[in-house]
Write a protein that binds this DNA or RNA. Structure first.
Lengths: 163, 163
DNA sequence: CCCTTTTGCTTAACATGTTAAGTTTAGCGC
DNA sequence: GCGCTAAACTTAACATGTTAAGCAAAAGGG
């Protein structure tokens, strides 16, 4: 019950469409607008958004299993399989079988991968800083709060983490 | 040199990574959590999220140029080109050259496409209604407000709509 | 210990994202 | 009208999203 104002005047059962679509679309647009700022930097370093996420998760988490890496970096398993191949061929990461559970693949950043992140991170930080300056750190903080609150509410009502 | 990395306590300039990544990631995760609810319905009707967006934009906008359609449905031009082919082959839409400007392609929903939307929309509405019930309409409204405010702030500071 | 189920990927197949280049048609300036 | 630039797609090429199968290793159960 936010504001059910009747925007158009087409009374045919489709009045709710705009509202229904607004949340997924708004999330999509907002993300796209943010990534626009980072894309030039990523392209300059020849990495995709997804590769960037994977590398950063590895930097923060250390060596981890492929499944956990996929979860934290928000990429699907099949995508990760392909990405690990190219990232390894590029020398940024290395993979090996977990000796205790040979089903698992342990992934780790190489020294070269670490150097890569150290070189690119400052630019990423600068872009983010500029973003904060332009739209306001407070506004971003509020948005993050709402996003986290929303996700927490969703987790609570349906599938918390793993059941 | 694989998995020794001491994840925590690394004071080396990467402390901000989590914060920098949080906004894009949060937007991605939130959207993914919402779409999870809609995916079963979309799969049941054999349409992708993108196709669904395109069809709904056509329903609301009427016949429009491909470029405007792409903008409103948030899909890239190359993607739309491919999608229009399959949607037309499926009989849900129809395209024709604009006689006044033969560069443009006018896209419109067919009667069959309209019927398709009328059959599927109620389910979409039901899913959205349940989502509102679970997380709270207020919470969703607040999130949408923040998202729109954020996007407006971004537009204002950089590229409004089209300049 | 054998069999079944589950886990953790990996493949395959197809749609879309993303960037760059190519094509056709409009619009402009001279 | 001619040539040039821009607009509106379209194609191409490769990466990723998404779903369904497939495979080998680990867990359980009898």
């Amino acid at each position: 019950m936010a504001d059910k104002a009747p925007p158009p005047a087409v009374r045919d059962g489709f009045e709710l469409d705009a509202a229904q679509r607004s949340l997924p679309i708004a999330l999509l647009r907002a993300r796209e607008m943010v990534m626009e700022r980072f894309r030039p930097m990523l392209n300059a370093h020849d990495v995709s958004e997804q590769q960037w996420r994977v590398l950063r998760v590895l930097r923060e988490s250390g060596a981890i299993d492929a499944t956990k890496l996929a979860e934290r970096a928000c990429v699907l398993a099949p995508s990760l399989t392909r990405m690990l191949r190219s990232l390894e061929a590029r020398g940024l990461i290395e993979t090996r079988r977990d000796p205790k559970d040979r089903r698992r693949t342990r992934v780790a950043l190489t020294a070269q991968g670490d150097a890569f992140l150290r070189a690119a991170s400052p630019q990423s930080a600068a872009i983010y800083a500029q973003l904060e300056t332009e739209v306001g750190a407070q506004r971003i903080a509020r948005l993050l709060d709402e996003l986290n609150g929303f996700m927490a509410a969703l987790d609570q009502s349906q599938g918390p983490p793993k059941r």
